[in-house]
Each structure stands twice: as structure tokens, then as C-alpha cells.
Design a protein around this nucleic acid. Structure first.
Lengths: 119, 119
DNA sequence: TCTAATACCTAATTTTCTTATGTATTAATT
DNA sequence: AATTAATACATAAGAAAATTAGGTATTAGA
């Protein structure tokens, strides 16, 4: 039995934007720190997005028009909420489809589809 | 319907070593150029490993003892065949299991497991 | 004879992440 | 009350892994 504690960083590379965009679809509106925690808890600590990776990614998404931001003050502490734009929804759909397709291809390539049914 | 012609390069990042190690499992003995062609044909041109990425990867695998090489001359042209070592077989198993596990996690994270049965 | 395919290789650059560092507020612990 | 941990943002230096572009040489095909 294979027990995995945390994925090697190479694997996660390239999927960060897709993860973020997809979370924004499901949760409508999130802030950076929340995204880190959410991914960590949803994956049983297997995927831990570092803040050094996340914030530049969020800024890039904003710059290219896939998300818009709004600042909310909780007392004196600021939160920056991110929301998908219409363009961002398209980007999200494309990215998620592509990743889904990629995983099917990888499954085939690595001979992992041992099941009988194959849609 | 989503039609994918070729995956964006970010996705493939981090999976190259795993792909190579796995191909060597199934095919026993392969040379670099052959690996490129095999991956290309098996994935309907969706994954095209560039030689600039492959050769350094193969050299790294050799350096860390996961593969051994033998040169074979076809006329005057040389082919460098790569074979998994025992250590390489272990590495391969680990890598493939990790990637398989990672894809399950991503499926869950991206809410892609809509099927009823869930092994 | 010229081009395409086969077969290897490396180097400069780019992208993307890690690691480290920084600021500041608020909650929890001692 | 004071210290630590958690919350919440951010950037910058460096590393890793790919792309892009270049190089050499042989062989097959047009």
C-alpha cells in the first residue's frame, strides 16, 4: 500500500492557476490566505500552496483580467477578495477541461486504466 | 465538446521523468529519439517531448543511477539505449504511484469525480 | 542533389516555484 | 501582561525544469 504524505513540488507546478480558478468557481469569492487553507484542508495537507507562489499568481490573474479584487477591512486588518470575471470563467473552464483531458492521457500513457469500462 | 490539440507546457512540467521511467518499464530498452516518437504517437501528438528537455533528463537519470546506457551502432549512426536499473525500478514505482495519487487528489479538488463508483 | 528524417548534444533564456524575509493585526497561551 | 501563534498581505533572491535555438552527423527518400 502506497502512503503519500506530500507531493513533490514538481507535480504541483503548472496546476496552481487551475486550482485557484476552480476554487473561485465553487466558492464565488475568496481571499489569498483562505485559498491556501482550503487547498491544504481539502487535500489532507498533501498539497500546500506557499504564499510566495500564490500571491504572484493571483496578481497575474488580476493583471490578465481573469479576476477582480475588492478590499475588505476586518477591524484594521485587510482582506483582498478575489472574484472571477466573465473572461475568468472562460479561462477556468478551458483550464479545467485541459487538465482533465491531460489526466486521462497520462492515465493511458502510464497504463493506469486497468478498469474495464473506458468512456 | 472540448477538443484539445496540445497541452500547455506547464502541465507537462514535472511529469517528464515519470513518463520516461514508465516507458522503460514497459518497453525494457529504448533510446532517446524513440521515446519522443513513442510519447507523441501514444498521445495523438498531445504531448510532444522536446529533445532539449529529454536528453538532460536522461542524463540526470543516468547520473543518479536509475538507468544504465549502452551504445549501439546502426551503420555509422549511434543509438544510446537506456535500461532501468533495480534502483530505477523502485524510483519508477514510487513516481508512478505518486502521480496516480496526485491525479486522484486533483480530481477531487477540481470536483471532477462525478461518477458513482469510487474505488 | 537536395530535403527530410533519424539521432545525438548543449547553451541561453524563460517560466514557475521555493525559500527567505518583511510588515502588521488579532487571538491564544503562559 | 507579555509572548507566541495565527491571520493576512507582500516581495525578492535563488533554484529547478522546461523552451527555444542552435549545433553535428548519418541515412532515406524525392
Amino acid at each position: 500500500m502506497y502512503i503519500c504524505h506530500m507531493y513533490s513540488s514538481e507535480l504541483i507546478k503548472g496546476t496552481l492557476k487551475t486550482i485557484v480558478l476552480n476554487l473561485l468557481k465553487n466558492n464565488k469569492k475568496m481571499y489569498g490566505y483562505e485559498i491556501c487553507q482550503k487547498v491544504k484542508s481539502m487535500t489532507d495537507d498533501k498539497i500546500q500552496i506557499t504564499e510566495g507562489a500564490l500571491y504572484p499568481t493571483l496578481h497575474a490573474l488580476e493583471k490578465q483580467g481573469d479576476v477582480i479584487t475588492e478590499k475588505v477591512y476586518i477591524g484594521k486588518r485587510v482582506r483582498k477578495y478575489y472574484t472571477l470575471t466573465d473572461q475568468g470563467k472562460n479561462t477556468m473552464t478551458e483550464r479545467v477541461n485541459e487538465l482533465s483531458d491531460f489526466m486521462k492521457t497520462m492515465k493511458f500513457l502510464l497504463d493506469l486504466d486497468t478498469s474495464v469500462q473506458n468512456v
